[in-house]
Design a protein around this nucleic acid. Structure first.
Lengths: 345, 345
DNA sequence: TTGAAAGCGCTACCAA
DNA sequence: TTGGTAGCGCTTTCAA
């Protein structure tokens, strides 16, 4: 084959080794860009001959063609992103486990999950920043997004807005996570154990109020009208802080305490024991979240076990909402709380 | 004011309440789209008069205009995203804390962090999927990305590719996290305490091999040539598994054990004590990561404290790499390991 | 079965 | 100081 066809490009070769586009693929395969699109997206409405398909695929392969998601989004009017503002919540909590699971499940459904860093604007202002990405869905943990934020997101193309928090927001699907139920369970348990002067640990770490406040309120609610007292106990997650709290324990005169969760309970337990306070003899102690640490201590910690929906379930809800944007808004209670009585109460 | 100007739109009102574009803003403000762009982006190369600026801002405000990130990316050739494939790593680990911090720091630098779910394609195949998003930077935890993956990402516009793992990859910046150092520190410590028959707990949970394997190797390395023995102890993070391991402890005849991290150490400690094995009397125990749980147990756990770079530092590295894509590739050791001797060893 | 071309929203170059 | 407009890469309608 002594003669070689040399294709003279109409446009000069790009200066930098630039990214191949579908036009490059089309040129190499000797077809139009439309055909490339049909083949690469397996468009069912159009039938392309097998030889052509092969040529396109080979050309794409050879060039290392990678479609440009932004161009596709621009054309489609929205992206494949699910936006999830990252709540300022310490990792390791039960909740962050749930979030992780959810991300994975959404990934499997072919969505791209975008964690939007929490610092910066909040609430409805934040919604504007999120809207720039034209996400196909938005999951908002905690409260903070109002009806107008939801409206803005929907106007900018979000097919589904789902709130995960204590209350529903007009226009959005709601997964109601009522942390007050955790407090109610703990309060009722301590009361049933005969405790009447009850302390509630409230973490000082920022970002936890979303959970700690409702949990405290739940305890209050469960004890209302019983004559039992509720004492709020602010506590930083540090040994020194716990020791200081334990040092004034006798003065506080509490006979029962709900420690926000098992980690704070573990911290407090050690401090109380070091101070000579008997648990559960002098003071009954119950945590929450049913973490492993509670089972490793002596005495084993009583706890409130929390049942969260599986990430898969929520991912499916999102997927359904995206596919049928007109469907009725879901509003679902998704937090189950049950006391696991062990040895500390 | 009995007369009202009614503006007849040239194009019929969109059927759906559609998203306002910069053209809508321009129309309302009575200027061109170019001017809108200049004003809204504060383009310094062009000076726009104050009244015009105000009109544009007011129009944008009134319409609830939100720029379309995809259009901007298409135009710019790349997005403001930093892609970070989410490693299949349990939340709560020291490492996931670091990842979180990093995300926040990048958010503050005005990048959008995208968690790419791990399931699906792996290694260089995954790189293709990531490339579709035309990320401005890619952070790859763990190993798994090869030189050709890096090349593909760079070709598709990534200004910086940073690996976080045991080894550097050609073409990418490297943050070397040598977990073998953790094992070496633990091994040397146990040896110095006079222990010669040493067990190393290796978690059975998937996704942890990335850390557990080098940690084990580190112990082996530190003991090479000393005559001390190393026994691998697979362990699932469950009480039953720990109890089973403890039950055959006497047969194993170990006098020292490095338990991967403090959580596994806590699990094992309880099981050993329940079995009547004295710690540190019969067996010295050391964990790693310096978690709070280790300080709450009796005896307090010795541990290997790990120093990771702050998320801020890494975020700045990324930002610098993005801004000077031509600069030399960084290659930095970032994991410091130091024994904290407490009461369990 | 395939191709031509419009147009998604935005920025930046060049003119006025 | 402002406007006109090309063009980023892709999908999809309409025509051939």
């Amino acid at each position: 084959m002594p003669y070689v066809m040399v294709q003279i490009p109409k446009t000069p070769a790009p200066a930098q080794r630039s990214v191949p586009t579908s036009a490059d693929v089309a040129r190499l395969a000797g077809v139009s860009r439309a055909t490339v699109s049909y083949v690469l997206n397996n468009t069912s409405a159009v039938r392309i001959s097998e030889p052509t398909r092969r040529r396109v695929h080979e050309a794409a392969e050879e060039l290392g063609y990678v479609p440009h998601a932004a161009a596709r989004s621009l054309r489609a009017g929205h992206s494949r992103m699910v936006l999830m503002p990252a709540p300022a919540i310490p990792v390791g909590s039960l909740y962050s486990r749930f979030i992780n699971e959810l991300q994975q499940a959404l990934g499997r459904l072919d969505y791209t999950v975008v964690q939007y860093g929490s610092p910066g604007p909040a609430g409805d202002d934040a919604a504007r920043a999120w809207a720039e990405l034209r996400p196909v869905a938005v999951l908002v943990p905690g409260s903070g997004l109002g009806p107008q934020g939801v409206a803005l997101l929907r106007r900018s193309g979000a097919r589904a807005v789902v709130t995960l928090g204590p209350e529903a927001v007009r226009g959005a699907h709601a997964l109601l996570m009522d942390h007050a139920a955790v407090g109610r369970a703990a309060g009722a348990h301590l009361y049933a154990r005969g405790r009447r002067r009850i302390g509630v640990v409230v973490p000082e770490e920022p970002g936890l109020e979303v959970f700690s406040r409702p949990r405290l309120d739940g305890v209050r609610r469960s004890l209302r009208g019983t004559g039992a007292t509720v004492t709020e106990l602010p506590l930083a997650y540090e040994e020194e802080a716990a020791a200081a709290l334990a040092a004034r324990w006798r003065d506080l005169g509490l006979d029962g305490v709900f420690a926000y969760n098992d980690e704070y309970a573990a911290l407090l337990l050690r401090a109380l024991q070091d101070e000579g306070v008997a648990v559960p003899g002098d003071t009954a102690l119950i945590g929450a979240d049913d973490l492993m640490v509670g089972r490793l201590l002596r005495p084993r910690l009583s706890t409130v076990h929390i049942e969260l929906p599986s990430g898969r379930d929520l991912a499916e809800l999102v997927d359904r909402a995206v596919r049928e944007p007109g469907a009725a808004l879901e509003r679902r209670e998704v937090l189950g709380a049950a006391v696991v009585a062990r040895d500390s109460s």
